[in-house]
Every structure is written in structure tokens, then in C-alpha cells.
Design a protein around this nucleic acid. Structure first.
Length: 267
DNA sequence: AGAATTACCTGAGCGC
DNA sequence: TGCGCTCAGGTAATTC
């Protein structure tokens, strides 16, 4: 389940490997993802060079000159970089073949991903225009979070998972950040003090950066997927001892999402 | 406007 | 062995 750190690690690796390379061919096998993959990609991309790769939230943006290839990995998607030809497996929906023989393969069993072609300013595209500040940027801090949360009764965890509030914070890192900030996930967002908002903004950045660091450190040769459960203090550990105090962790559902916290350490 | 709910999709795990 | 159910969850769309 790619979250922001996994997407960022993928971005860094692909940036190293693909910038300067040109598309030679695009193979579309399954086009029905969350949005239909435009068939024109097969005509638009060949001959274009990857000038750079950016990220906005969990979206990857391949700068192709006068247009952008947008990729979202959804829940189960990943991009695999191969050399030469390789028979596609189940759920290998798209291949991007480069002029140096490299093959970038989009794999996504659940088909929640998106592959789209954007012209004009990509940040003005409807999929990206309403996304909140990047959590690793200076625009996301305690002052912003405090101002944004005033008067809102929604649970803190749901607030920070709202992509319009802050980009790219999914269920795993929302749980982890709230544990680290010692804030209960079901607190009404508007009850947070400025100090708590500041702490929360800091730890959100920390959990994401820690995970990115871990991913950078153990990049495997072919895969560009990353997922580091050894870093998780609470996610997936409901009913097990709290790493802080040893009490058993509570697991509840918030907005339909699995939510794990320590009733002793978080308030 | 904010909050809650639903839809999209497949594989894994479970009870029977 | 297999059927039906629930769960996993990012995000857009829809409804309240």
C-alpha cells in the first residue's frame, strides 16, 4: 500500500534511472483503472524525453516536455523497472518501453491507480488543484494546522487524512504520527491547542522522513515498491502491547478506517 | 461549508 | 472444496 514515503522513494529511483531517457513504445493491456487510461498515450509518448519527475502528494508527475504523465499507485499499484523484454504477469496493465531498452511496468491488482496525460499547468488539473500543502514543505506547520482545524468537529485522524488539509498522509502514517504526538485519533480536531498542532505537524514530517530514509537505504534492484512494517509502532498492532507503556493497544474504526492507539499514552 | 457515506476493485482470510 | 462474507484502503463523487 504505497503511501507518500513509498511514492517518494519510487520517484527518487525513477528520477535517477529515467531522466534523459526517451519513450519508445507504450503497451496498454488493461485501460480500465480508476479512470480510463487514455489510449492516445501510445501515440503521444513515443519520442518524448523524461525531463524530470515530480511528486504532489501521492501523485507522480513525469515531465515530458509539453505535457505531463501523471501516475497514482492507488492501494496496490507499483512501478517496476526492468531491462529488455519480460512476459507480463497478471495485473501488469501497462508497459512503458524506453529507447535504452528499459521497461517501466505498471502493476495494480485492485485497479485503484490512475495513469493520465496532463497538458498545461499540472497543478491546476482537477486531480491536483485542491490538494493541501506538502507535509515535508515549510507551508505545513503548526500555525497552519491550528488555523485549519478551528471549529472542526471531525476526528483529528480524519482531518490529517483529508488530502485538502495536507497532502499524502494515509492511514498508516496518520496512526503512527498521532501515537508519536501522544494525541488520541478520535479527538475533535478543533480541540487541539496550538502547541499540539505544532507537535503534530513536526511528527507527521518525522514519520514520513524516517520511512523515506529507510526506503532509500534498502532499495532493491528491480522493484520500486517499499513498505517498512518494522517501523510501525501501532499500525497493525491492535491488541498488542504499547511500545511506550506496555498496555494493550486499542483498535477502533474511524471513518471506516482501522485506527490503533494507546489509551494511556495518547490523550 | 463541513461531514458522512458510497463507489471503485481484487485477493486474502474466515466460518460453515 | 467452495460459497459467501468481511476487510484492506486512496480518493472522488454524492448526499445530508
Amino acid at each position: 500500500m504505497p503511501e507518500l514515503p513509498e511514492v517518494e522513494v519510487t520517484r527518487r529511483r525513477l528520477e535517477r534511472e529515467l531522466v534523459g531517457k526517451s519513450f519508445k513504445q507504450v503497451v496498454l493491456r488493461v485501460r480500465q483503472l480508476r479512470l480510463p487510461v487514455p489510449a492516445e498515450l501510445a501515440k503521444i509518448l513515443p519520442g518524448r524525453t523524461v525531463r524530470g519527475i515530480d511528486r504532489r502528494g501521492k501523485y507522480l508527475l513525469f515531465d515530458c516536455g509539453s505535457g505531463w504523465l501523471l501516475v497514482h499507485l492507488g492501494m496496490t499499484g507499483f512501478l517496476r523497472l526492468l531491462r529488455g523484454t519480460s512476459p507480463p504477469g497478471k495485473h501488469d496493465h501497462l508497459d512503458f518501453i524506453f529507447d535504452d531498452g528499459r521497461l517501466l511496468r505498471f502493476h495494480d491488482p485492485r485497479k485503484f491507480g490512475i495513469v493520465a496525460w496532463l497538458t498545461g499547468d499540472p497543478l491546476q488539473h482537477p486531480l491536483l488543484a485542491e490538494i493541501g500543502p506538502e507535509p515535508l514543505s515549510g507551508a505545513f506547520d503548526g500555525t497552519y494546522l491550528f488555523a485549519t482545524s478551528r471549529g472542526r468537529r471531525v476526528a483529528v485522524k480524519q482531518l490529517i487524512m483529508n488530502s485538502g488539509v495536507v497532502a499524502g498522509v494515509g492511514n498508516i502514517y496518520a496512526n503512527e504520527a498521532l501515537f508519536r504526538a501522544r494525541i488520541r485519533p478520535d479527538r475533535a480536531a478543533g480541540t487541539m491547542t496550538l502547541q499540539e498542532c505544532t507537535e503534530l505537524a513536526v511528527v507527521i514530517r518525522e514519520v514520513l522522513e524516517d520511512s523515506i530514509g529507510e526506503g532509500d537505504a534498502c532499495l532493491v534492484a528491480e522493484e520500486t515498491v517499499a513498505y517498512y512494517p518494522q517501523l510501525f509502532k501501532v499500525y497493525g498492532r491492535g491488541g498488542k502491547p504499547c511500545p511506550g507503556c506496555g498496555e494493550l493497544l486499542d483498535e477502533i474504526r474511524l471513518g471506516g478506517r482501522s485506527t490503533v492507539y494507546c489509551r494511556t499514552c495518547q490523550e
